[in-house]
Amino acid sequence: MNKTFNNKAWWMVLPVFLVVAFNALVPLMTVVNYSVQETFGNNEFFWSGTIWFKQLLENDQIRDSLGRQIIFTAVALLIQVPLGLTIALCMPRKGPWVSVCLVLMALPLLVPWNVVGSMWNIMALPDIGLLGRGINALGIPYNYTRDPAAAWFTVVLMDVWHWTSLVVLLCYAGLVSIPDAYYQAAKIDGARPWAVFRYIQLPKLKHVLTIAILLRFMDSFMIYTEVIVLTGGGPGSATKFLSIDLVQKALGGFDLGPAAAFSIVYFLIILLASWLFYTLMMRNEAN
């Protein structure tokens, strides 16, 4: 049989190539390009090798931002995942309240990010904000614009408010997909609620939880808008996370080279951590 060669198929793939090139490859390569050059404006570039990367790794300021970022992400995950799972478990599976709960849960996710920041900014103001005044009225001194601990508390609270819903919705979808027969079988065995959770719900939610943790990890590691609106990274640099540091370097200082190197390292950290998470959590599956 003669094989017919028809290379016209390449034309079909071309649009995808173009889209991917313009939204991923070209910008990424531009950043790579900047990261190994120096510029003083006037569109003049000079080769600088790995200087920016070396500086980056020796920079204490960035190391501090990274530390803050890791602590923030850890705290966010530690609160949001168990809390989201608990709320999902408490939500009704049937009846008219299902849609009410789902809408309430979805609301925070629909609010634009900078609006979330403004909302909490105003709400937490110690003199006029509901939250700020409330806490002060309880006799606890609270001022997130001056006290780093208060700033952290507010940022974490805001992130929990904004993103726990995502974990709730994912877990709820997972819970609803467990066939009733599992619960019945457990009931016939006389299993207690804890056993039902431990031996039926948790194993069945494994994949959903993996996705939830991954999404929350990536998003919280890249948090920018809400924090910049709420605290601007302050007081001092108490809530200056990696992305804030990066933007200040790139736009504020117009240090394109160092900022580009920073971006690449940032990207690699997220990629590596996500890969690690995923492999670790899926490892049991392979065994």
């Binding site: 016939i188 006389g190 039926i200 194993p203 069945k204």
Partner: peptide, 18 residues
């Protein structure tokens, strides 16, 4: 049901996954 001493087998294969 848990005090009635019954067993049930379903169309789906229902076992404890872990």
């Amino acid at each position: 049901v848990q005090r009635r001493n019954v067993s049930m087998v379903y169309q789906q294969f229902i076992n404890y996954p872990m």
